[in-house]
Design a protein around this nucleic acid. Structure first.
Length: 270
DNA sequence: CTCCGATCCTGATGGC
DNA sequence: TGCCATCAGGATCGGA
């Protein structure tokens, strides 16, 4: 569900609630997520102070005194702050109760998300192999071009590989390729230098626009304040099968690449 | 090493 | 109204 803009929207919403707050308790109602929620979390975290919340790729990192909570929202996860007395719903699997009575609550119906604990986030297996942040200084057309040489996989597949660039999922891969006018099926290693220039700029612009809009709500994404994202109103290609391309009027086509729906304009993206 | 498909899980939606 | 098939914003893993 959430890609980089949705995770960043969540981070910004949570930040004011988590600065210098002491953890009172951790309640794990359902430990069976993508990986089991480790018992060490509920043992170690209470009593520690949270210092802030960062984002790396689609991961949220809660920094505490002696370690870091790693949260991934998977396909259907969301985080919000409620009062500790708010009765949990069916899919509300984990609470971090704070000393001021606020409660950070993870909801995740499909349980593809994760909540983990690490003493050293930079060396954690899930974070160590991640590629550059697409909005960071070390991501540009040079980088993408070099990363793509000799690769036969499609350009869309490459963009969605977090070891190449972190945080781009299905929606924003589709949107960025449309914006750059590149065929998502094209082998990454044969995409030209000038097209990578357009693509790097398109990725940045698309993600920045989406963050500004508070992310995309297709069905159930909500910010931590419960607000939907508004970027779906700006989607140019995602989900528009059979509808006219907003640039040229051709019928938008769909193919499946890497088991994910892929939308493109056969005329603009060639 | 690279690539591709299967896989985990629940819920919403649409056709009959 | 019910039943069934299909699809969904992720990403790891194993086999080719």
């Amino acid at each position: 569900m959430p890609e980089l803009p949705e995770v960043e929207t969540t981070r910004r919403g949570l930040e004011p609630w988590l600065q210098r707050r002491r953890v009172h308790a951790v309640v794990v109602r359902e430990p069976r997520l993508r990986w089991p929620v480790p018992p060490v979390l509920a043992r170690e975290l209470p009593g520690q102070t949270l210092h802030g919340i960062e984002r790396r790729a689609k991961y949220l990192l809660l920094t505490a005194d002696r370690g870091t909570v790693i949260v991934h929202l998977g396909m259907s996860g969301s985080l919000c702050v409620v009062t500790a007395e708010t009765p949990p719903g069916k899919a509300d699997h984990v609470d971090v109760v704070l000393d001021d009575g606020a409660c950070l609550r993870l909801r995740d119906p499909r349980r593809f998300g994760a909540v983990l604990w690490t003493a050293d986030p930079t060396r954690h297996a899930l974070l160590a192999e991640l590629g550059p942040e697409p909005l960071g200084a070390d991501f540009d057309d040079d980088y993408l071009y070099r990363a793509s040489r000799g690769r036969s996989r499609t350009i869309k597949d490459l963009l969605m590989d977090s070891r190449v660039v972190a945080g781009i999922g299905n929606i924003y891969a589709n949107e960025s390729l449309f914006r750059a006018r590149i065929d998502p099926r094209h082998p990454a290693g044969r995409v030209s230098r000038s097209r990578y220039r357009r693509l790097a700029a398109a990725i940045r612009a698309t993600l920045e626009d989406a963050i500004r809009a508070g992310g995309t709500t297709l069905r159930d994404f909500r910010s931590s304040e419960g607000r939907p994202g508004y970027f779906q109103q700006q989607l140019q290609i995602y989900g528009r099968t059979g509808l006219p391309c907003l640039r040229c009027g051709s019928r938008v086509r769909t193919v499946t690449l890497g088991q994910r729906s892929t939308f493109f304009c056969p005329r603009c993206q060639s």
